[in-house]
Amino acid sequence: MAEFLSLHDAIAQYVEDGATVAMEGFTHLIPFAAGHEVIRQRKQDLTLIRMTPDLIYDQLIGAGCAKKVIFSWGGNPGVGSLHRLRDAVEKGWPRHIDILEHSHAAMACAFEAGAAGLPLAVLRGYVGSELPSVNDQIKFIECPFTGERLAAVPSIRPDVSVVHAQKADRAGNVLVEGIVGVQKEAVLAATRSIVTVEEIVDDLDAHPNACVIPGWAIDAVAVVEKGALPSYTHGYYPRNNRFYKEWDAIARDRDVFSRWIDENVMNQREDA
């Protein structure tokens, strides 16, 4: 049953050093505030899973929280590179990180398989790609019925998943609207889950087929207004495209980046 916690307490309680953590949100609803709280609490040695690491993992990597990143597209969308990810991979700053890279299709299937309680996901994927030669978690199996060669990847079962959503009701049931990505799958695949929401309402007012995650499938709900900025929350505020462009210059330089983290993350309280 979802417990209403402050963001600080939710992260302190459920994100342990060394944990495997998925903070999902496909461009939309990226749980930035939660990521910043992880940085503030100086969590270490995390294995970070995300289809698109985006700025949130660029920040966590640059702040030294990650030992490994599992991803499928590691860029700043429409802008260019994630410079902190690159600096860690290419030069080991601020520490060496391991990477394990997939395709989007494989990661989406792996989250779904995790939610379904299966050990693996099967897809018609990676044909002719050299990714299997650098990722030993991509195998091929033969369909027992047709003989077709199909790709197999292990399901994703994070210790903790963190997602952001529009709203929760007073029982902690959560409504996710707009681009829903793999958030529901991430929550259901994880041992523990934290959902940050823009607001608490009396009634979710959800259509019968809306993406609702029941409160009893979530461990903690934390109210964090604007918790997805600079990404966006459909129906609440737009994506700050300008910041995504500005990030390029901030992240390019280690000192500028470190200053930015000090001023915008370390010196801020969660409600600031």
Binding site: S72, G75, V89, S103, L123, L131
Partner: peptide, 13 residues
């Protein structure tokens, strides 16, 4: 790597 690029994304499939 000399230059690390974003990766595969959706393209392989």
């Amino acid at each position: 790597p000399k230059v690390r690029l974003p990766g595969g994304g959706g393209a392989p499939e």
